[in-house]
């Protein structure tokens, strides 16, 4: 098995998996019905992406399947970005987490559609259509909340500031990534970093909001298997039935 490709595929899979999990937790909590539906719709797109990547990872690994990977791994074997573990908290945090992630996903998948790995390219080809819409929606909400009322401006600015500490992980490269990038499989993170900051600045300017500052906070990263304090609780719920009835097929 190509261990590096396997790890990289899990990073893509798990980030989508955990974010979709957070979105499904938001069921019936939205500010109005249309937003409940939109959050669930985004969650459905993301779980679909996660499933496609997990299937690919399972094929590479052999002797497992996408469900076992999704529901039966140990915490350190999940490779998602920290930001997707952040709790929904309120609609402002949900939108901000989505916005930061959508901008990254959009530019990441824009490159991955040309990945030399045909499976990753195919999944990216489908995902790019979905994340283009996700980005449109979350950007519009940032603008509405930023340029809405005084209260909404203050609240969304606080969300942007609070979640900023998780952003540097998007662009942090490592040996796995560099090797795959050299092979034309993984995206160029330096290019994405520039595009990401440009897009975020553009939206925040329209929203009359201030781009947060600060560089690096995390000592370990989710993509290396180190997680926030939130992750254990997520897995307790996600893996509840699998842990309680390990032999059962649902």
């Amino acid at each position: 098995m190509n261990q590096e490709l396997y790890q990289y595929t899990l990073r893509l899979a798990d980030t989508a998996l955990i974010l979709s999990h957070r979105l499904c937790e938001y069921t019936s909590c939205g500010p109005f019905l249309e937003e409940d539906l939109a959050s669930m719709n985004t969650g459905l797109d993301l779980i679909g992406q996660a499933e496609a990547f997990l299937k690919y990872a399972a094929e590479m690994s052999g002797n497992t399947n996408e469900d076992k990977l999704a529901f039966q791994r140990n915490e350190e074997d999940y490779k998602n970005f920290h930001i997707v573990e952040y709790p929904n908290t309120d609609f402002g945090y949900l939108v901000t987490r989505q916005f930061y992630m959508d901008v990254f996903n959009y530019f990441n998948y824009s490159q991955l559609v040309n990945s030399k790995d045909v499976t990753i390219a195919a999944i990216a080809g489908k995902a790019i259509k979905e994340v283009t819409y996700h980005l449109k929606r979350s950007s519009e909400w940032i603008v509405r909340l930023g340029d809405g009322t005084a209260e909404s401006k203050e609240r969304i600015q606080a969300c942007l500031n609070d979640l900023w500490m998780y952003v540097d992980e998007f662009f942090e490269t490592d040996e796995i990534h560099e090797n795959l990038q050299r092979q034309g499989i993984a995206a160029d993170l330096d290019v994405i970093r520039k595009q990401w900051h440009q897009k975020v600045e553009e939206v925040l300017q329209e929203a009359t909001l201030t781009k947060p500052e600060g560089a690096k906070y995390s000592l370990v990263y989710g993509k290396d298997g180190g997680h926030t304090e939130y992750m254990g609780f997520i897995l307790c719920e996600m893996q509840y039935l699998n842990n309680r009835y390990p032999e059962a097929i649902w």
């Binding site: 719709n41 779980i47 997990l54 999704a70 529901f71 996600m238 509840y240 039935l241 649902w250």
Partner: peptide
């Protein structure tokens, strides 16, 4: 929905809740 035991069952439940809305 956050405790659905498989990817398929979770997707179906999410889609169903979305339909109800």
């Amino acid at each position: 929905v956050s405790r659905a035991p498989s990817l398929r069952s979770k997707k179906i439940l999410m889609a169903k809740i979305q339909d109800e809305g």
